[in-house]
Nucleic acid binder design. Structure first.
Lengths: 246, 246
DNA sequence: CCGACTTTGTGCGCGTATTCACAAAGGCTT
DNA sequence: AAGCCTTTGTGAATACGCGCACAAAGTCGG
């Protein structure tokens, strides 16, 4: 079906999502090696640095048509370039941060933006007491100007750091204004039209996943301070009134 | 092999990881419904609210032995309790935040902790100019006291928000002090002994994944401003000297 | 120039996750 | 009380990701 050439396929356009998610990790490990002056690295070493299986690493790299040298390893500088290129880091991406609360402020000051080809073109907030403030060398602007700023600077990635209630509205607006990638920090499921990518970062979810495993280590939901099997059976309307607020 | 009873298995102890990762999303959607006074919900509705396929939702819920009523749906309050219990949110988990920079401050002020059974027992930093500051109602303590605080408060989850260079050291210390769950915001791969869970939140990686897809939408790595197929062929030492710093 | 050694690239089998599609179950109407 | 209608729970098919293990490829020492 898919025209599968076996020679210089340029790895096809189909890099698995799981691989894409690991490329930034490899890249980070590689730039670390580069700074230490390492010229070549074996899949074993790089895999260890990235915390993955070496076969997985090799398969990942093979997807982007990368060339290692058998018996030697991979040339660090070349790999850095290849991965950067595949990830689109050889060009600049313009980012807008919407919502300048504690988190937005932290993001604005985050060094990881500028250093990797992401340029923050605007900080926006709906709160008049925040608009006009100087943060990380930028002046916070009002969300009224959102469409304007997106258009003028060619923003293609929006970082949403607003309260949950405002997130979907902001999302709709940035998408309507032409943004096709959204990084969402608000604890809501955003709905977007096809063709728009959303990635979610959710502290609360991560903590809950950790709590699950923590509980399991301690002996499962009925583990410790529980009765000797005499819980309220399913169906019994007896559950604790612990209400979890938003 | 695995004793698979077919009646009241209590869903076995084996909830798939992918399911666990979605339970918090369901829980959030459910508490939203609860606040709006909704008493029952169908898998279709809940799935829509959580942004997943309804069959997946039903299978997920079936794993925790949950009981819906055919022809009706699920009782919201009951599901909230079941999921909370399964995730371990019916008990409190004690958290310490290490690293009180911009991000640490934002985390300290994040409402999602207290509201869902996570109690922040300490803010710690190695910088003397930060130690002693009052943040979100807590006094920042020196990392020297880390082991002390973990032991005294029974911290089981450590949130690492230090610079990259300090993260592994801090991680080793908290693990040695008895912490078995780590939420890592530092851009490094932490290595931990078996039995310790680490989850990673990494802004920079998320952005790079978005950039990848953004680039693809624009026509792949060679898409736009590229030559008509006349790139430097692989093997040619010709790559751009764009150096990406740490 | 050759042989031994190292390391890549990948075929293959396995386990997990996702989705469809439908029978079973229960409520509700008449 | 009977049948219709809705919705769950799950078997089965498909897709995906992972890791082993090994042949192919290339280097390096003698």
């Amino acid at each position: 079906m898919t025209s599968r050439q076996n020679h210089r396929d340029r790895a096809g356009r189909g890099i698995p999502e799981a691989t894409v998610a690991r490329l930034p990790v490899y890249l980070r490990a590689l730039t670390g090696l580069q700074e230490r002056g390492v010229a070549t690295v074996s899949s074993e070493e790089l895999a260890a640095a990235a915390g993955v299986n070496s076969a997985k690493l090799r398969k990942d790299l093979s997807h982007l048509g990368s060339y290692g040298t058998r018996g030697v390893g991979y040339e660090v500088e070349y790999l850095v370039y290849q991965i950067s290129r595949e990830l689109g880091l050889t060009q600049d991406w313009v980012v807008a941060i919407i919502g300048v609360g504690n988190l937005g402020r932290a993001l604005a000051g985050y060094g990881g933006f500028a250093s990797r080809g992401f340029r923050v073109a605007g900080l926006l907030d709906a709160d008049d007491s925040i608009v006009g403030q100087e943060i990380a060398g930028m002046t916070v602007e009002h969300t009224d100007r959102l469409e304007d700023i997106i258009a003028r600077h060619g923003v293609s990635i929006a970082v949403i750091a607003t309260p949950a209630g405002a997130a979907q509205g902001v999302c709709d607006r940035v998408v309507a204004a032409g943004v096709t990638s959204v990084l969402n920090f608000a604890p809501v499921v955003l709905s977007v039209p096809d063709g728009v990518d959303v990635r979610k970062v959710d502290l609360s979810i991560e903590l809950q996943i950790l709590a699950f495993h923590e509980q399991r280590k301690a002996g499962g939901p009925d583990g410790l301070a529980s009765t000797t099997g005499g819980e309220a059976p399913p169906g019994t309307k007896h559950y604790v009134e612990t209400v979890i607020d938003a």
